[in-house]
């Protein structure tokens, strides 16, 4: 049904999307927490910075990543010299680019759920002897679970489809950074590629549906567990 290249594009997309979630998740949870619960100078600055990728052209994000994480860039150079890790034009780089792009969505989903948690519950945990980390792990995090799940699913779906930042920072290398949308773009650009383009578009729609339905199913189960 699908050609070898199309299977490859699907595999790359899943790797990039999965990688982008793995990169953004550990940052998104504390950032969401800071934005909702903490009171500190520079909170609105952090808020604006987190939302920047949502308002900048994706190509501009790709370009900035290239400047920072290129092998000669300040961060990229250090990563390459220290760990031998190259990001530009690699699957890991594509994951990083889509992580940056989907970060605002992920934080937003978590913020919404965190704002719905009565701060009094954390206070109650405190009077029961729970320190800051203990409170976060035993009360806040489990109650945030639906928001974290929603954030992960939307970020994963966005990662499957991220185009501009990926093609700018990681290029369009088959088997390495050619994700579904990049393969679709290439198919459209190729003479007689209409059939392949149709198949890739259908595949994207099917993945999108599957993602949304499974997210809804998981969210319902979580809500039931939280007694809502």
């Amino acid at each position: 049904m699908l050609s070898a290249e199309e299977w490859q594009a699907l595999r790359v997309s899943v790797c990039v999307a999965g990688g982008s979630v793995a990169i953004s998740l550990p940052f998104a949870v504390p950032v969401a927490w800071l934005l909702v619960r903490a009171r500190f100078a520079g909170r609105s600055l952090l808020d604006a910075f987190v939302h920047l990728p949502a308002v900048l052209p994706p190509v501009a994000i790709g370009y900035l990543l290239l400047v920072l994480f290129g092998v000669r860039g300040p961060l990229g150079g250090w990563l390459y010299a220290t760990f031998g890790l190259r990001l530009a034009f690699t699957t890991a780089g594509a994951a990083l680019a889509s992580a940056v792009m989907s970060f605002p969505m992920m934080v937003r989903a978590m913020r919404l759920s965190l704002e719905g948690i009565h701060p009094g519950l954390e206070e109650a945990a405190r009077t029961l002897g729970a320190g800051p980390l203990d409170r976060f792990l035993s009360v806040t995090l489990p109650l945030m679970a639906p928001g974290i799940l929603a954030g992960v699913v939307t970020a994963f779906a966005a990662g499957l489809g991220e185009f501009g930042a990926v093609i700018t920072f990681a290029s369009n290398i088959p088997g390495e950074t050619r994700t579904l949308p990049l393969a679709l773009y290439s198919a459209i650009e190729t003479p007689h590629g209409e059939a392949a383009a149709a198949r890739l578009a259908t595949l994207s729609i099917a993945l999108g549906f599957a993602g949304l339905l499974s997210a809804e199913f998981l969210a319902r189960r979580l809500r039931a567990r939280l007694g809502g």
Binding site: G120, L121, E123, A124, T127, L128, G129, L143, G227
Partner: peptide, 19 residues
Amino acid sequence: PAERRGIGYVFQDARLFPH
């Protein structure tokens, strides 16, 4: 700090953990 006072607190709105 509150978590080391060993003072039990019963709130007006109970504040049971829903999970």
